[in-house]
Design a protein around this nucleic acid. Structure first.
Length: 803
RNA sequence: GCGGGAGUGGCGGAAUUGGCAGACGCGCUAGACUUAGGAUCUAGUGUCCUUUGACGUGGGGGUUCAAGUCCUCUCUCCCGCACCA
């Protein structure tokens, strides 16, 4: 027997697979298809992370299994290559981001290939490729044409010292990550996409798909649909009306003041009337330095300023109430204004306590002097003329009807989900393919002129006015209107990184098509994606964005399915050995290259699948890696005990059938760790038996193949099985052979196991009773006791209750 | 703060979904073989007492013949929060 040298055999088989193109999806549309998708990586400068192979190996296993089951499998890979880190690297090192990207992609590709994933590399895509982003731009134009893209004033993070716009991530504790300078919010006119128009469908259609539960709930909560009332509060002595959204119109009689967001337009409108405008301005400035996230933190002290000179009128009590501004009210949620009911909302309660505002109880049930009473199940309305004595639910109904009749409000559905800010003041992204004409306004670039290519620039830094670097290239910006031929300017903002990843699964289907994002024929065959695995962190942004785009493409007749992904699963994170997130600064990063070089790709793959519950975060363990290498060494040594034979060894037969069942099911249900454990157990039985037939070995090798594809192919060849493993078929099991006739039944006395008896599967309670009597160990616990009850669960347990 | 998730030996985890807690692997202990090695093989390994046994799934309370699993209160940790990908 030769020594097990993974580096040699892994290279050998990777070359064979590539040369024979065994993992390329087939053209034969008569075959059943299986489309497996993993999130394509952002090719960062750091190279592949051990977290990537966790997700990739999982679906590689499923893909390899499905191929052996006769499916036509599409398992593609590509690059989500636009992005901030590449751009920042390019700025710092004065290298074009395209070159940085090429270099990173090359490295990633080499790394992925060394791990032996069965990707169909003939369909590789790259979001920064003009042939690709042509279609990203095309989709944007369609969205624009259907009125789903619009311009709106939105704040960006602005570093006052670098004079550039910053991503949220680049703002650390209110300061610029690069220079430590002060960051404020600066308003810019930006492109937005109306994802909110699809909010209901994004919730409802979750019923059509098989996503793990936590993904569904997280999406539903992120969209945050709530039904309530928009109530109109008149501004005293003015024509204006302040609209607020509330889910608790029943508490309207308890609304003792109002709070509007510090950025609320009302303030600008009445700036000449507001008596304490200086104070208001100061507070606005203070708030402009905070993120929405910081603003809504409850733990902090409430802050705010009363707007003097403006009052609102409570529509049911007709009393004048004060209007405040406070940072806990966000312009981005609801109407940017709230009615404050301190007795029945905890944030309002805290605010009222701090500023000595009146707290009026309108739902009886708690002690509103001590805390807000927010229960909606058991309270009874008081101090509320029209709805006194009603329960909360009835009160909401009645007051809502009344408000609608009086024209003081309207039933509304509100969402937490906000429209998608689609503009970035950056270079390394898809140019937004629109032109602003002096006469015609915003005009899309005609389809035959796509893609709008990213022009070459000298300097990738955003301009000090907050414009994208493209704004400096006059000859690019200045163009003619496609409609009227007159003078026009190109949009200089680029798209966010999410754009390219919102439809990439469609391009894999027909990656080289110059005439369409994918042909109808191919889409009909391959869509939807059967199984999409990726990180939990993409649940509320990427996953939702791509579902939104897909639904839009469905609406305009491009795709034929309402949902892009039939099934969505999610892996846990791999942490450093010290149980902390892997990061350069913590110095606990594990490089997969090192593991492949030292232990082999099969060991890396096996370990990543055996490391723990696939869906949970787990710390890396070098010893665990060694253990998996040892397992593969034992597998390697099996070749010494193989004897000829086309049938399973009699004594091993039941175990083999059981293992086929277990492994087949576990691979499909993300329980890779227990599948491998089952294979280890079978291996131990093989070794105990001393010799195994070729048939035993063959089944074992096929079952292990998806996890450790190289060693199993090699052993297949060594022991002389016909053809190559990847050409064989997934084994079947026989349920009859798994059944055991005799089993050990635990016997409990008062719920505690006192012994076991051997029983036949079909033994009745009477037979078992007799067998118990023969067992001295158990009978001892019954001495001098009176049997009260006996419980027999066939095949599980026999419990005797005594007094 | 809001939303999602997780707590089981020294460690990663398993438990047919209410039925023998700790499969499998790591680590550790002892032994065997040694051309002394981070190799391989054998045995042991939740905690406590010498044994019968008792205790044991973050903590408290409950339901049940039976609870890691169900109910209730509570503590701790992790992830996301819209311009990172």
């Amino acid at each position: 027997m030769k020594e097990y040298r993974p580096n040699e055999i892994e290279k050998k088989w990777q070359d064979i697979w590539e040369e024979k193109r065994v993992f390329e999806a087939k053209d034969d549309k008569s075959l059943p298809k299986f489309y497996a998708l993993v999130e394509f990586p952002y090719p960062s400068g750091e190279g592949l992370h051990v977290g990537h192979p966790r997700s990739y190996t999982a679906l590689d296993i499923v893909s390899r299994k499905r191929r052996l089951e006769g499916y036509n499998v599409l398992f593609p890979m590509g690059w989500d290559a636009f992005g901030l880190p590449t751009e920042n690297y390019a700025i710092k090192h004065k290298i074009h981001p395209r070159i940085v990207t090429e270099k990173n992609v090359e490295r990633f590709k080499k790394q992925l290939k060394s791990i032996g994933f069965s990707f169909d590399w003939s369909r590789e895509i790259n979001t920064t490729d003009p042939d690709y982003y042509k279609w990203t731009q095309w989709i944007f134009i369609k969205l624009f044409e259907k009125g789903l893209a619009y311009k709106k004033e939105m704040p960006i993070n602005w570093c006052t010292s670098c004079k550039v716009g910053l991503a949220n991530e680049e703002v650390v504790g209110g300061a610029c990550e690069r220079c430590g300078g002060e960051v404020v919010r600066k308003v810019k006119n930006q492109w937005m996409l109306k994802i909110t128009e699809y909010a209901d469908r994004l919730i409802d259609d979750l019923e059509l798909v098989d996503y793990i539960e936590r993904v569904k709930t997280q999406q539903i909560n992120w969209i945050g649909r709530s039904e309530g009332m928009e109530v109109y509060f008149k501004i005293a002595e003015k024509e204006d009306v302040l609209k607020v959204f509330t889910t608790r119109p029943d508490t309207l009689y308890g609304a003792t003041y109002m709070v509007i967001a510090p950025e609320h337009p009302l303030i600008e409108k009445y700036k000449d009337i507001i008596e304490n405008m200086d104070e208001v301005r100061k507070y606005q400035e203070y708030v402009s330095k905070k993120s929405d996230f910081e603003r809504t933190e409850l733990s902090k002290e409430k802050t705010g300023v009363e707007i003097k000179g403006l009052k609102a009128i409570n529509p049911v009590t007709n009393k004048e109430i004060p209007i405040w501004i406070s940072d806990y009210v966000l312009m981005t949620y609801g109407t940017g204004a709230i009615m404050a009911v301190p007795a029945h909302d905890s944030r309002d309660w805290e605010f009222a306590k701090k500023f000595n505002l009146p707290i009026v109880e309108v739902v009886k049930g708690g002690n509103v002097e001590k805390e807000a009473y927010t229960d909606t199940e058991s309270g009874i309305l008081v101090n509320s003329e029209l709805i006194n004595g009603l329960e909360v639910k009835e009160a909401i109904e009645k007051i809502s009807n009344w408000l609608e009749e009086q024209g003081l409000g309207e039933r509304k559905v509100n969402y937490k989900l906000r429209d998608w800010v689609f503009s970035r003041q950056r270079y390394w992204g898809e140019p937004i393919p629109l032109v602003e004409c002096e006469k015609c306004g915003w005009v899309p670039v005609p389809e035959d002129q796509l893609p709008v290519m990213l022009p070459e620039v000298e300097n990738y830094e955003p301009t000090d006015t907050g414009e994208s670097p493209l704004a400096n290239i006059t000859e690019w910006v200045e163009t003619n209107c496609p409609k009227c031929g007159g003078k026009a300017k190109r949009e200089t903002d680029t798209m966010p990184q999410w754009a390219g990843s919102s439809w990439y699964y469609l391009r894999y289907i027909d990656p080289h098509n110059p005439n369409a994002l994918a042909s109808k024929e191919e889409l009909d065959y391959w869509m939807p994606v059967d199984w999409y695995n990726g990180g939990m962190e993409h649940t509320t942004l990427h996953l939702l964005y791509s579902r939104f785009w897909h639904k839009f493409l469905y609406d305009i007749g491009i795709v034929n399915t309402r949902e892009p992904y039939m099934k969505r699963t999610s892996q846990g994170m791999i942490l450093g050995e010290n149980n902390e997130k892997m990061s350069k600064s913590r110095g606990n990063v594990i490089n997969p290259d090192g593991i492949v070089a030292e232990f082999g790709a099969d060991t890396l793959r096996t370990y990543e699948m055996f490391i723990g519950d696939f869906e949970k975060a787990v710390p890396w363990s070098e010893n665990g890696v060694k253990g998996c290498r040892r397992f593969l060494e034992r597998v390697w040594r099996l070749q010494d005990i193989v004897v000829t034979g086309d049938e399973y060894t009699k004594e091993l037969e039941a175990s083999i059938h059981k293992t086929i069942k277990k492994v087949s099911e576990d691979y499909e249900s993300l329980k890779f760790n227990t599948a491998i454990a089952a294979l280890m157990t079978l291996l131990n039985e093989f070794n105990d038996s001393g010799k195994i037939t070729k048939a035993d070995m063959k089944t074992f090798l096929i079952l292990l193949n998806p996890v450790a594809p190289h060693i199993t192919e090699e052993l297949w060849e060594i022991i002389g099985l016909p053809g190559m493993l990847h050409e064989s078929q997934w084994p079947k099991y026989d349920e009859e052979k798994i059944k055991e006739d005799i089993l050990e039944l635990p016997v409990q006395v008062n719920g505690k196991v006192r012994g076991t008896i051997m029983v036949n599967v079909d033994d009745g309670q009477e037979v078992i009773k007799e067998k118990v009597k023969e067992n001295k160990g158990i009978m001892k616990h019954l001495e001098g006791k009176q049997i009260v009850k006996e419980i027999f669960i066939p095949g599980k347990i026999y419990n005797i209750v005594v007094k």
